[in-house]
């Protein structure tokens, strides 16, 4: 991810940078479509079993999800700040901001994990610990919930890895004034955030 030297097809660095950016945007486009399938499934479930869907949604720990939304939004803002800092030549500040952003990302995963644990104990995990599941649609809702948030958590993990690579081992990408790589990583992190912003109301706040 962090080659900054001019490589083969390109003859100019700015071109190459633009190419990296475009590649990232397209990749994000495909990610959106990936989650799009899940949102379509949620919509169908919501339309066909509105009663159960709302009931199931009401049983979600919306405050945990809410905290997570705030956590992820803040993290995203910090990454945006880091990007500005890098562009302004303040690599150290950028490093700190990224560090905080990563910490928040980890916090997100921790909270998510706690939530899963609570759900396990409550007995609403389909097939594994499903004592409290009432009815097919409730089960479907939980399946969808675990698929969507699980896939999202994988993306968070991926994003954290990328962010981590910006400060460790060398952090050279962070020092680069054009911030190509950092910019792309930030884009990815914003996308992860954005998807959560849609997942949260879809799963937790359906009324």
């Amino acid at each position: 991810m962090s080659e900054r030297a001019l490589h083969d097809p390109f003859t100019r660095l700015d071109r190459q940078r633009e190419a990296d950016r475009l590649g990232m945007l397209l990749f994000l486009g495909s990610e959106v479509m990936l989650f799009g399938g899940l949102f379509a499934a949620a919509m169908v479930l919501r339309l066909q079993h509105s009663h159960d869907y709302i009931a199931a949604s009401k049983e979600m720990h919306y405050w945990l999800g809410g905290i997570n939304t705030a956590v992820l939004l803040t993290s995203s803002a910090l990454v945006a700040g880091a990007l500005e800092a890098t562009r302004a030549g303040r690599a150290r500040l950028s490093g700190w901001l990224l560090g905080f952003a990563i910490a928040l990302g980890l916090a997100f995963l921790a909270i998510k994990g706690t939530e899963y644990a609570i759900e396990w104990r409550e007995g609403v995990v389909p097939r594994f610990s499903d004592a409290k599941l009432h009815g097919g649609p409730h089960e479907l809702f939980m399946v969808l919930y675990f698929c969507a948030t699980g896939l999202h958590a994988l993306h968070v993990t991926g994003g954290l890895t990328l962010l981590g690579m910006m400060i460790w081992p060398k952090g050279a990408a962070r020092a680069e004034r054009e911030a190509t790589t950092l910019g792309n990583v930030a884009l990815y992190w914003h996308l992860v955030d954005l998807i959560w912003i849609f997942l949260y109301p879809t799963l937790y706040l359906a009324r």
Partner: peptide, 9 residues
């Protein structure tokens, strides 16, 4: 209503 009574109550 018979197979999945909770769908529409």
């Amino acid at each position: 209503s018979i197979m999945l009574p909770n769908k529409d109550v």
